[in-house]
């Protein structure tokens, strides 16, 4: 925090991303597909937020996404704000076959506008596209809504593995852009981290000196 000595330049930029959406829309499955490339139709209901990380490279910049997967049921909001209060990005998920879950997304957006970072990057995943038989998936309403709030919309299927890399790398790109535009530049690392020890080799060699 404030009292700590300033952290040295990071080998990678880290961002915090939170997944939000109604119960059983596929939040956990999306994350697990993205991070571990697995899918299970025997996924247990999420009772407690869980945390995963994913490293990726966008435009030559190594990025670490810290992903918080949350429980969908409304009552769990009581334990919720810590997950999205300082999130850099929110991935809002709904079930493409269930309109109520889309309404829940709009509720979440309202809450985020009040509670979260003002410049939080938002994306909407219209999930479970594998359940839609017809080739033309109607996402007009969702797309125009997404546009109106400055979010991007992606049609995804955690089961088929489609659209998922796209949505996460879109988020990462926009996060990076946002950070470049902000005055602090890339050095604006997560304030809560001390020295980050990266055990996996990051994709790019970090600068040889860790402290100067």
């Amino acid at each position: 925090m404030g009292s700590k000595p300033p952290p040295p330049p990071q080998p990678s930029v880290s961002f915090k991303l939170v997944l939000l959406g109604d119960g059983r829309v596929g939040k956990t499955s999306l994350v697990l597909r993205y991070v571990n490339d697995v899918f299970s139709d025997k996924q247990e209901a999420t009772v407690q937020a869980s945390y995963l990380t994913k490293r990726l490279v966008v435009e030559g910049v190594p990025i670490t996404l810290s992903i918080w997967d949350t429980a969908g049921q409304e009552k769990f909001h009581a334990l919720g704000p810590i997950y999205y209060r300082d999130a850099d990005a929110a991935l809002l998920v709904y079930d493409i076959t269930d309109n109520d879950t889309f309404l829940r997304v709009t509720k979440w957006v309202k809450e985020l506008k009040q509670m979260a970072n003002k410049d939080i990057v938002m994306a909407i995943a219209a999930n479970k596209s594998d359940l839609v038989r017809s080739k033309h998936i109607d996402t007009n309403e969702a797309a125009s809504y997404a546009e109106s709030i400055g979010a991007t919309l992606f049609v995804t299927s955690a089961k088929a593995g489609t659209g998922i890399d796209d949505i996460f790398s879109d988020i990462a790109k926009r996060l990076l852009e946002r950070r470049k535009n902000s005055s602090d530049g890339l050095s604006l690392a997560h304030p809560k981290k001390g020295i980050l020890i990266v055990d996996d080799e990051p994709e790019k060699e970090p600068p040889p000196k860790c402290c100067s």
Partner: peptide
């Protein structure tokens, strides 16, 4: 000197969780 400043070794959040 570098060691001394690096000494604030901490386990990152991720490892803990």
């Amino acid at each position: 000197l570098k060691f001394v400043t690096c000494c604030q070794v901490k386990l990152p959040f991720e490892k803990l969780l």
